[in-house]
């Protein structure tokens, strides 16, 4: 049967790894290729790079990082950040990414997902959705863009469904409210979205303990959990996470 995935996410800036708390106050946490290799060896099911700068120069550094990762790491690599045009998708895929995650770009140009899916296939198009609680939408959850700085007025459930209809093959769902708090994933948000769509959902934002990871798999239909600081700062390890999940009856991929 299909296993629940553990995905370390590396925020990349100018070719180096950083992780912000609530997206501000960045710290350097190392070389992305070395980190990706070490996560691969410890049993990560996938690696995610998020480019948090999108200048031309930073882009070249990112492409180089993807290239180097792709020659050394043989598990799937998802790359996002600053993807605004179909050409951006092609550039990242050619560099060695297996999937491209699209966030603000899909709001600015709602046909981007469709273009990407028809050109490269749904399997490599991930819609990344940043969400905050809000009174101005039907579900009380609103889509935010530009790293959480700009409200869109779009209801998250409608947006998720619409993006799936247009060909997104997976949803990377980040709760801005939970992100950086280490108080746990937003279970009600993750649950709502993973019930509404039939594509895989990756839960993101808020993981601070093993219990949080167990909770998101047991209380929602999430298919994967994205992890950052918990792993980057050595608070836990992937084998520890996976063994705990297994004890709790959650199927994961165990490597020797």
């Amino acid at each position: 049967m299909l296993k629940k995935r553990i995905i370390p996410c590396l925020d990349v800036k100018n070719g180096r790894v950083v992780k912000g708390v609530n997206f501000v106050g960045l710290k350097d946490a190392g070389d992305p290729v070395e980190l990706a290799k070490s996560y691969n060896e410890s049993g990560a099911d996938e690696i995610c790079f998020l480019d948090i700068t999108a200048s031309f120069e930073a882009r070249k550094a990112l492409i180089d990082v993807i290239n180097r990762t792709a020659t050394e790491v043989f598990i799937p690599l998802t790359v996002g950040g600053g993807v605004n045009r179909p050409e951006d998708i092609g550039d990242l895929l050619r560099a060695g990414a297996d999937k491209v995650s699209i966030n603000s770009g899909a709001v600015k140009d709602p046909s981007l997902i469709q273009q990407g899916a028809s050109q490269y296939g749904s399997q490599c198009i991930v819609i990344a959705i940043d969400v905050k609680k809000s009174n101005c939408t039907h579900s009380n959850w609103e889509v935010f863009i530009k790293g959480g700085r700009e409200a869109t007025g779009i209801d998250v459930i409608e947006w998720a469904k619409r993006m799936v209809n247009q060909g997104a093959g997976e949803i990377l769902l980040t709760s801005m409210d939970a992100d950086g708090t280490k108080a746990g994933y937003d279970i009600s948000l993750t649950s709502a979205i993973s019930e509404e769509v039939n594509v895989p959902v990756i839960a993101s934002g808020g993981a601070g303990s093993l219990k949080h990871i167990i909770d998101v798999f047991k209380s929602t239909k999430a298919d994967a959990a994205l992890l950052a600081s918990m792993l980057h700062y050595g608070e836990t390890t992937i084998p520890e996470i996976k063994n705990t999940l297994l004890q709790e009856g959650v199927l994961t991929r165990i490597i020797e």
Partner: peptide, 15 residues
């Protein structure tokens, strides 16, 4: 078949 498979695409590690 969506009536048998709850998640499509089938993405991830399977045995």
């Amino acid at each position: 078949p969506p009536n048998k498979v709850s998640r499509i695409p089938h993405i991830g590690w399977n045995t």
